[in-house]
Computed example of a mutant assay.
Amino acid sequence: MRRSGLVTILVAAGAALLLTAASLLGLALLGAPTGFQTVGPPACSAPSLPGTLIRVSETDLGVSVMGSPMMRGAMRLSADRTSVPRGQVSIAVTNLGYVPHELLVLPLPGGQTPGTRISGPDGRIDEAGLLGEASGSCAGGAGEGIAPGAVSWVTLNLPAGRYELVCNYPGHYAAGMYGELTVS
Score class of each variant (00 low, 15 high):
R124D: 08
G123P: 09
G132D: 05
G149C: 07
A142E: 13
I125P: 03
A147S: 15
I125F: 07
P159W: 09
L158H: 06
W153A: 10
L156S: 01
T155M: 04
R124I: 11
L130E: 14
V151A: 01
A150P: 03
G136K: 00
A150K: 13
G129T: 14
W153F: 01
G143L: 05
G143E: 13
I125N: 07
G145D: 06
D126L: 04
W153K: 07
I146M: 02
T155F: 00
G136I: 05
A134R: 10
W153G: 03
G123R: 11
G140R: 01
L156W: 03
R124Q: 15
A128K: 14
S152M: 08
G145Y: 07
V151R: 10
V151E: 00
R124M: 15
C138E: 02
S137M: 09
G129K: 09
S137N: 12
S152W: 03
P148A: 11
L131P: 02
G143M: 11
D126Y: 04
T155K: 08
E144K: 14
E127W: 06
E133F: 05
A150Y: 12
P148T: 05
A147P: 02
I146N: 02
G136A: 10
A134L: 02
I125V: 13
G132K: 02
E133D: 13
I146W: 03
L131N: 12
C138I: 04
P148F: 13
G140S: 09
C138T: 07
I146F: 05
G129S: 11
G129P: 07
P159R: 08
G132F: 06
P148Y: 07
C138F: 08
R124V: 09
P159K: 01
I146L: 06
I125Y: 06
S135I: 09
G145C: 00
G132H: 12
A139F: 07
E144P: 03
A147C: 12
N157D: 15
G123C: 04
G143V: 11
V151W: 05
P148M: 11
L131H: 01
E133N: 05
E133A: 14
P148K: 05
L130A: 10
A150I: 07
L156N: 01
L131F: 05
L130R: 15
A147K: 14
S137W: 11
N157A: 14
G132V: 08
A150M: 14
V151N: 00
S137T: 13
G149L: 10
T155G: 09
G141F: 02
P148S: 10
L131C: 04
A128D: 14
S137G: 12
P148W: 13
E127F: 04
S137R: 08
I125Q: 00
R124W: 05
G132Y: 03
T155Q: 04
R124G: 10
L158S: 02
G149Q: 11
G149S: 04
V151H: 04
D126G: 06
G149V: 08
G123Y: 03
D126C: 03
L131W: 00
A134S: 04
G141D: 06
G132Q: 06
P159M: 07
R124K: 14
S135Q: 00
S152N: 04
R124Y: 05
A134V: 14
S135K: 11
G132T: 12
E127G: 07
L156V: 01
I146H: 06
L158N: 02
A128C: 00
L156K: 00
E144C: 03
L158Q: 09
S152Q: 04
